[in-house]
């Protein structure tokens, strides 16, 4: 079972939910939590697990072989991203702009731009008992999250069997990284908060999920007397609200120092239990 935790905007409590949920569920199930917010992977800050593996992740970029080059200029013309630029008698390659499409390399008549590996980020795996955690971090200066998200997904697929419950902490927004992070999930939890901002961003996230044909439900974070704002919308759209995490200052304080929340705030644990029941009863996790 693969579940993703996503939201239309940042700061809604995605990471709070995924880290606490992963820990909570790991008391009964074997769980792997994967942080796919590769630009700002923050989940690890809240987990304190032992690192058991670290590996570099690569993308393919062209490398200029000066001796073979005749400065014909085809490479520059073939790159729609302007990642290859001819400067007088030099060819410059900008790895951050390169999408690894291979066009410049394979269209070069002189084979002067072979594709080579370039480090785009680091993947780390952590473990205690039944909780596994995987995160990838883009190198500073690397701008493209999607290839690293793909690699990280592959790693998790190849290293954890079907019986392991997989939770993915997705990047915020509605653009390509989110789509890459949620497209293989069986179910998506959309985290929102009961404010007009939260509602607006939830609507965008719902549109994205529908476009992707995903099954999804909503978790309301910082739930308070304004919940009707979200519940009215969800009712009208026939979307299930699975849990309501209360708005408490104590939760914000525990979060600020990176501490586990459900073991200290019983109301939080109750909501995680609802999610667990949903997983067992509706999604048939066993």
């Amino acid at each position: 079972m693969k579940i993703a935790i996503a939201s239309g905007k940042g700061g809604t409590g995605k990471t709070t939910l995924s880290t606490n949920l992963a820990k909570y569920l790991s008391k009964e199930f074997e769980v792997v939590l994967t942080d796919l917010d590769v630009e700002e992977p923050n989940s690890g800050l809240f987990l304190n697990l032992d690192e058991i593996l670290e590996e570099d992740k690569f993308k393919m970029i062209p490398k200029w072989i000066e001796d073979k080059c005749t400065l014909c200029g085809i490479c520059q013309k073939s790159c729609n991203y302007h990642a290859v630029i001819q400067l007088g008698e030099m060819i410059l390659v900008f790895p951050e702009l390169c999408h690894s499409c291979y066009a410049c390399s394979e269209l070069c008549p002189e084979e002067a731009l072979p594709m080579i590996k370039q480090k785009m980020g680091v993947l780390k795996q952590f473990k205690t008992d039944k909780l596994n955690f995987v995160e990838s971090r883009l190198e500073i200066g690397q701008e493209q999250a999607v290839p690293l998200i793909k690699e990280t997904n592959n790693f998790v697929e190849n290293n954890f069997g079907k019986e392991v419950l997989k939770i993915y902490d997705s990047p915020p927004g509605t653009s390509c990284p989110v789509i890459e992070a949620t497209k293989n999930a069986d179910f998506v939890f959309l985290v929102t908060e009961p404010t007009p901002f939260g509602l607006n961003d939830l609507q965008l996230a719902v549109e994205t999920m529908r476009e992707l044909n995903k099954d999804f439900g909503v978790v309301v974070n910082r739930s308070d007397s304004n919940n009707k704002l979200i519940s009215d919308y969800c009712d009208s759209q026939k979307i299930k609200i699975i849990a309501n995490i209360p708005n408490k200052r104590e939760i914000a304080e525990l979060y600020s120092s990176g501490e586990e929340i459900y073991s200290k705030v019983p109301e939080f644990a109750v909501e995680l239990k609802k999610i667990k029941s949903f997983l067992i009863n509706e999604l048939k996790v066993d």
Partner: peptide, 15 residues
């Protein structure tokens, strides 16, 4: 018109 990579292109033009 360019979504990305404006800086390197303007630099190239200066050259």
């Amino acid at each position: 018109k360019e979504a990305h990579g404006a800086g390197p292109q303007t630099s190239q033009k200066l050259f």
